[in-house]
């Protein structure tokens, strides 16, 4: 098969203990059967490990933080585009998605394609709106409430029992066992990720996730279900196994059809002892464990790039069940000159 040569920009290069999806995406793209991929890393911090992994990333450029505004990001991307002629960008951080969605038309004019959810889809599934989302699409969601001020925390006793989950709007989640702990978590999370902070009923059970890809017209192009086998203290899967859960996969297709989801996603679910599934979160991007999907036969990063380029994509129908992913960490030895070059020039 003649592979199409493409240059893909990816972020999420922080292969740390709460990893960004960049590494899994890069590995998937390098294994793509239909694409010959050159990867441009888009980094925010100079110590994101993938910057220095030259077997996975061909060249890396630093980006301004999303909080600096769309104009700054656009201006930086204009420069990068002059140098690299990127065909597709896959933003892998929750916190940057909004900015990228806003500049999608400008990037398109520059020749850069993306395959992201529409703004309404992005907003509708947001943690803050998840309860309404569950009602609308008939999916069980633990009761949740967005809190904007510390004093609101004192009014939650009638709505919640302890323990409960306190979550940031982008990242972080803590279990709180009393009002004081809720307040501590509220302050910690709001200082880091801003407002609102989300309170959610704690549901006890086993954690299951589905990663998938919707074509924007209601078709599920890919869907792989996974049970977390080993969870870190940050709640991240360090090992997981692919499963054939009919209910989860049907629910995923229902979600894609009903919302006409465009792009990659991850459904975070919990199964209670009485076998009820609750939807905890919908992440509107490729998750860090997506390499499991690649390993069991559904190369989501490859399919996403093809969709972004307007190429034909055949929906995946099946995958290998009972395969595990096991994450590991590894030390890299890096010359100071490389770190210096990235720090001083913003590119490597």
């Amino acid at each position: 098969m003649n592979k199409k040569r493409v240059t893909v920009g990816i972020s999420g290069l922080n292969a740390i203990d709460s990893p960004g999806p960049g590494m899994a995406v890069a590995m998937g793209l390098h294994e793509a059967r239909s694409l010959d991929v050159r990867i441009i890393g888009l980094a925010y911090e100079s110590l994101e490990p993938m910057i220095y992994m030259h077997d996975l990333v061909d060249r890396t450029y630093q980006l301004p933080y999303p909080s600096s505004g769309s104009d700054m990001i656009l201006s930086r991307l204009e420069y990068i585009q002059e140098m690299e002629h990127i065909d597709v960008i896959i933003p892998n951080f929750d916190a940057e998605l909004y900015s990228f969605m806003k500049i999608e038309p400008q990037l398109k004019r520059m020749g850069i394609r993306m395959f992201l959810p529409a703004m309404e889809q992005y907003e509708e599934r947001h943690k803050v709106n998840l309860s309404k989302f569950g009602e609308k699409y008939d999916i069980l969601v633990p009761h949740g409430k967005a809190v904007f001020e510390p004093k609101e925390v004192f009014d939650i006793k009638s709505e919640f029992t302890f323990p409960l989950l306190v979550k940031g709007k982008w990242y972080d989640a803590y279990i709180a066992y009393n009002i004081e702990q809720v307040l501590t978590c509220f302050n910690k999370i709001s200082a880091k990720w801003g407002l609102p902070v989300i309170l959610q009923k704690f549901v006890h059970g086993s954690e299951y996730n589905v990663t998938g890809l919707g074509d924007g017209a209601g078709t599920t192009v890919a869907a792989v279900a996974m049970r977390k086998q080993y969870i870190t203290d940050k709640g991240k899967a360090w090992a997981g196994i692919s499963i054939d859960d009919t209910y989860l996969l049907e629910l995923t297709r229902k979600f894609v059809t009903a919302t006409k989801w465009r792009g990659a996603f991850e459904l975070e679910m919990i199964k209670t002892q009485d076998n009820k599934y609750y939807l905890l979160e919908i992440n509107p991007r490729i998750p860090a464990w997506t390499y499991l999907a690649v390993g069991v036969g559904q190369n989501i990063p490859e399919a996403l790039v093809r969709l972004a380029l307007g190429l034909k994509v055949q929906p995946y129908e099946s995958y290998d069940v009972g395969k595990l992913f096991i994450r590991y960490s590894k030390d890299m030895i890096v010359d100071r000159e490389e770190f210096e070059k990235l720090s001083m020039t913003g590119e490597l």
């Binding site: 086993s206 299951y208 996974m226 049970r227 086998q229 997981g240 196994i241 692919s242 499963i243 054939d244 859960d245 009919t246 199964k271 069940v321 009972g322």
Partner: peptide
């Protein structure tokens, strides 16, 4: 039907991952 049992006594339920 889909439960896998190996000769060693290892049993895997592909629906739940257990």
């Amino acid at each position: 039907e889909n439960i896998a049992i190996s000769d060693s006594g290892y049993l895997f339920n592909p629906s739940t991952g257990e």
